[in-house]
Design a protein around this nucleic acid. Structure first.
Lengths: 129, 129
DNA sequence: GGGGATTTTGACAACCATTTTCATTTTGGC
DNA sequence: GCCAAAATGAAAATGGTTGTCAAAATCCCC
């Protein structure tokens, strides 16, 4: 009985980058899906809790979601113009975080790492335009 | 005429970790300062724009501010229990972000890195309590 | 299938940090 | 002192997100 949740996940999978709850809702409605905003929020949360999608916060405080290919721990390289996202691994960063944390006596160390930039196609279209 | 702004900065300096705008406002009022919430927000923004304070977002979307000792680029090791914060440098991370970005054709690369953990005194008080 | 308990759904209201508005106060220049 | 420009702050607006609660769908045991 998770038709709705599956629909939300599918919508997310079809997207290249991170999408907000409101985005997902609008897109689903546009495609004729009969679903409420509340349910989209709940589905997104459940998906995030279950580790099926990754969440991050934009600079203006919106939560954005993405169905990632890898279930393993990874980070994101996000185009700040078009939102195109590449999943990247960073073993060096993992080790660094762990080291710097324990050097200062911290335990149960976690970290957030996101890399932003302008992707190749966006920088060429800027030059062209 | 930046008495207010200076007062906000001073309040921030007296804090160990990151504080929200509402925190700063409440504390200033408690100490008898005559200042409005709007002004605290404005001062915090100006300070952040000028690079005098660092900003980050909590998991629940609140913006929190900190007057950092170093004006240079650095990251934070934050205790998730008491908020105690240590400024850390990560040259390896800087290089990694730059490398991973250009490998994928991205330019104008920036990054956000935060490390969370439980600090020594918090983990010992948990064991004791 | 039937019936009742349980879960899911979604329209709407409530929340709450943050921003905007706008009238008042303060400041700086002369 | 006087005026224009900037700063201030109380109150209202904003907007993403969450809570409420009644209706609808689903499950489960018979």
């Amino acid at each position: 009985m998770s038709t709705r949740r599956d629909a939300v996940r599918d919508t997310l999978r079809r997207s290249e980058g991170f999408r907000s709850a409101q985005d997902v809702y609008a897109e689903m409605r546009q495609h004729g899906a009969k679903i409420g905003l509340t349910t989209v929020y709940r589905a997104l949360q459940a998906l995030a809790d279950g580790g099926d999608v990754d969440v991050l916060r934009t600079d203006d405080g919106e939560s954005v979601y993405r169905a990632c290919a890898s279930g393993d721990h990874h980070h994101h390289l996000v185009c700040r113009r078009c939102g195109h996202t590449v999943e990247v691994a960073g073993p060096a960063v993992e080790r660094w975080a762990e080291t710097v944390g324990s050097e200062h006596g911290f335990t149960e160390i976690t970290h957030t790492v996101e890399v932003f930039g302008t992707c190749a196609s966006c920088s060429s279209s800027v030059r062209a335009g």
